[in-house]
Design a binder for these strands. Structure first.
Lengths: 124, 124
DNA sequence: TCCATAGTTCAGAAATTCGGAACTGTTGAT
DNA sequence: ATCAACAGTTCCGAATTTCTGAACTATGGA
């Protein structure tokens, strides 16, 4: 098994991000990953409610997310721990991830403080 | 020639937007369209500098942009006038288009007042 | 009418995506 | 040590999508 490839922050390209998140299944996976308390393993995310993603497809989804720079994957024993790279990404592409998740109606509470919106207090 | 299809604002789906803008050629077209002073015809946008997009491909790019809800196209005499639906889109998906164009380094001056960033004055 | 121009549609080749089956790597039990 | 179970990856063929040259349609002008 070849080692997993993760692009450096500066090599992440917007087209790869948009492509990866143009698939609602991948968005669902990514949004769940952004939720704390989710173990982040692949198989924990296979169930979409209306459909169970086949494992080869799931593996490919994770590969697309990883190689686009959206997540980091690390083997831990028999399973894979995945985590988003939201903080890094927000520094490179301010507001992008947040506005995409909002568009999909998938913004997790954990990301509410990401850039892209002024605080609701202090508004007039 | 069948009439051109434009989705209603409420039927526009984020995956279609992201998919359409996951292609740098389409982004270049869209960004140029968002620029005032550009006539908005298809052939005016075929030249990317490093490559001239074949017209069948160009026609397809416009179709993808149109059917995703990013632009409106209207026949005017022998040619097609295209315009972005930025204002509408920003109401439905706040900050999305702006942050995508920023990510690509393609934000036209005309869009600088779109939502997605507080004004630079009043910052501390 | 005939021609030129702008763009669309068609069709086949090339590339991509999907997913079942086989495989790899790790842990734990015997 | 061997074996079984499990998590995930790779392989590969089928189905789908993308690309683009060639043919076609629509409009306006001479």
């Amino acid at each position: 098994m070849r080692p997993l490839f993760h692009p450096a922050l500066e090599d992440i390209r917007p087209e790869a991000i948009l492509y990866a998140l143009s698939d609602p299944e991948r968005v669902a996976i990514f949004a769940k990953l952004a939720t704390a308390g989710c173990g982040g393993t692949c198989s924990a995310l296979a169930d979409l409610g209306d459909r169970i993603i086949p494992k080869s497809s799931l593996s490919n989804h994770f590969k697309v997310l990883r190689e686009s720079g959206l997540i980091r994957s690390e083997r831990q024993g028999v399973e894979m721990r995945n985590q988003t790279r939201c903080a890094e990404l927000d520094a490179r592409f301010p507001g992008l991830i947040r506005s995409i998740l909002v568009a999909y109606g998938q913004l997790p509470a954990q990301l509410e403080t990401m850039s892209g919106e002024e605080k609701s207090r202090d508004r007039r």
